[in-house]
Amino acid sequence: MVWSPLEWPVLRQLRSGDRYGRGPAVQSAHTRATQPRTATADRAVQSICPFCAVGCGQKVYVKDEKVVQIEGDPDSPISRGRLCPKGSASEQLVNSPGRQTQVLYRAPGASDWERLDLDTATDMIADRFVESRRRTWQDHDEHGRPLRRTMGIASLGGATLDNEENYLIKKLFTAAGAIQIENQARI
């Protein structure tokens, strides 16, 4: 498009009768041609924000099997379409170029990280968990009173876990005998 002085916002404002410059007179051709990412999405999926325990509703817009936008769900009885700044930015959790998508492991004393497959990493964690529990188990105190606990295992959960995940983690660690269980959202 060839630029013309007649397209200056002030002249458009005078020509269109938009006296205060709050309407179409102040929009450039580029702005008028801009479409929201939600308009080109293949579908919208209802979801829940992962950041805290409130459970705000989200609409996740997907195009070509890739998340393109996340907005508040107006049908949610909890948030009625509103999201906090963290919830509004949750699309970055999925699409951030710095997001880790593979398990990384640095052996004790090593200077470099190595990639592990998920099954190997899960087995390593489970073996260490069971061994620590076995090694630090306290069945009774010095007076013979039952303890049935371990002080060798603790849990500090993150604020991006939802209520259900935190509930299951609490049940798992309590069943394993751990008593040092905390969550970042409560600290």
Rank of each mutant, 00 (worst) to 15 (best):
W137R: 04
S96N: 15
G81A: 15
D127N: 08
T122G: 03
A154T: 00
L104T: 09
D139A: 09
E131S: 10
A107R: 14
L118C: 00
D123H: 08
D112C: 11
G109F: 07
L147A: 06
G98D: 11
H143I: 01
E114V: 12
D127M: 03
G157T: 14
D119K: 06
M124D: 08
C84N: 12
T122M: 03
I125V: 10
Y105V: 13
L104R: 15
L118I: 01
T120L: 00
R106N: 04
P97K: 07
T122Y: 04
R128F: 00
L93P: 05
R133S: 00
T160V: 10
G144E: 05
P97R: 12
A121P: 06
P74H: 14
D127A: 09
H140S: 07
D112R: 15
W137I: 03
T160Q: 09
V130W: 00
S79G: 13
R82G: 14
S111R: 14
V94N: 05
Y105W: 13
R80T: 14
P108F: 09
E131V: 02
D141A: 09
L93Y: 07
R80S: 15
S88A: 15
R149T: 02
E71L: 14
M124N: 08
S76E: 05
R145A: 10
A110I: 04
N95F: 08
A110G: 08
A110D: 13
R148N: 05
H140G: 00
P77F: 04
A154P: 00
L118K: 01
P108R: 13
A107P: 09
S76I: 04
P77E: 06
E131H: 06
N95S: 15
E142L: 12
I153T: 01
S155C: 07
S155A: 11
G98L: 07
G98I: 07
D75F: 00
A126M: 05
A121F: 01
L147E: 05
D123K: 11
I70Y: 10
V94K: 03
A89N: 13
R128L: 07
I153L: 13
C84R: 11
C84W: 08
L156T: 04
E71A: 13
L104G: 13
P77Y: 02
S132A: 08
P77K: 03
E91C: 15
P146R: 07
G158T: 09
R115M: 08
R148Q: 04
R115W: 04
P97G: 10
S132G: 06
T101W: 01
W137K: 05
R149G: 04
L93R: 08
G81F: 13
W113T: 05
E114H: 11
A121M: 01
V94S: 11
Q100N: 10
T136N: 10
